[in-house]
Amino acid sequence: MTGRDAPCRDPRPEADGARRCGGLGPALGVAAAERHAVTGIGIMGKEIRMRLARALSSSARDRSQSGALRSYGPVSAAVVTAAALGSVAIDPSDPWYRSLRKPPWQPPPAAFGFVWTPLYISIAAAGGRTLQRAPAGERAPWGSALAVNLALNAAFGWSFFKARTPYAGLAVTAATALSSWDLVRRSARIDRGAAAALVPYALWCTFATALNADIARRNR
């Protein structure tokens, strides 16, 4: 058996992994990153669903002023959870990310924090208002739609930065944009003010989809 035919027995992730196993080192690294990303997304989705389930049950029991607090509180907690879990995976200083070719119209990294802070506040406010004013039959479907949206929102960093796949990031941002516009549509049937508060979020997700599509195209 020649050296080229010998089986690979060294799984260590050193920098020369690209030369071992016929170049399988990087592929194994990407596969591991994707597994970690999927696991992270699953944990995020479960946590967000638990937060919103609490809001739905509380709102159903009491629609008074204390009921409003029970709606806004858990929804805000779910939004904060999604923001925190998603931000953990995002690292603009990552050498891999810095090596990507990006369009000249991409905002500087610092701009994203300034944009997302008011957007998350608007999601929490619109979500609490909608759940508080929704008829009994509308609460569960709307809460489920919000849970899906927040899980997708939090999943972007894991699918793009952790898995290091621009096309996976594009798929997540596109799904988040569609989900955001669906939330606007659902909210408009319950409270137009809440729907209007969600429009900037949906617009930003649409912009993010266009940005990720351009990055994916430039780095094929």
Rank of each mutant, 00 (worst) to 15 (best):
K46R: 13
A37F: 03
R35M: 10
P26E: 08
R35Y: 03
G40F: 01
T39Y: 11
L24S: 15
K46V: 14
S58G: 09
A15H: 11
E47P: 00
R35G: 01
G22W: 08
A27H: 12
I48Q: 04
G17E: 13
K46P: 00
H36K: 14
A18V: 15
S57R: 13
G25A: 11
A18N: 08
A53P: 05
S57C: 07
G17M: 08
M44G: 13
R61H: 04
M44S: 14
G22F: 09
P26C: 06
R49I: 02
T39W: 14
E14V: 08
A18K: 11
E14H: 14
L52W: 01
A31E: 05
C21E: 11
R51D: 10
E14M: 09
G42M: 05
I41D: 07
R49Y: 10
G29A: 14
G17F: 05
R35A: 13
A33Q: 09
S59C: 05
L24Q: 12
H36A: 15
A60R: 08
A37Y: 06
A33E: 04
L56W: 05
A31R: 15
E34Q: 15
G29L: 01
P26V: 10
G25D: 08
T39E: 15
P26Y: 05
G29T: 10
A60I: 06
S58F: 11
E14W: 14
E34P: 00
H36N: 11
H36T: 12
I48N: 00
S59H: 05
M44Q: 07
G40D: 02
A33G: 13
A55N: 04
E34G: 14
G29P: 01
S58N: 05
G29K: 07
G23N: 02
A18Y: 15
A37I: 06
G23R: 02
G42Q: 04
I48D: 02
D16F: 00
A37E: 06
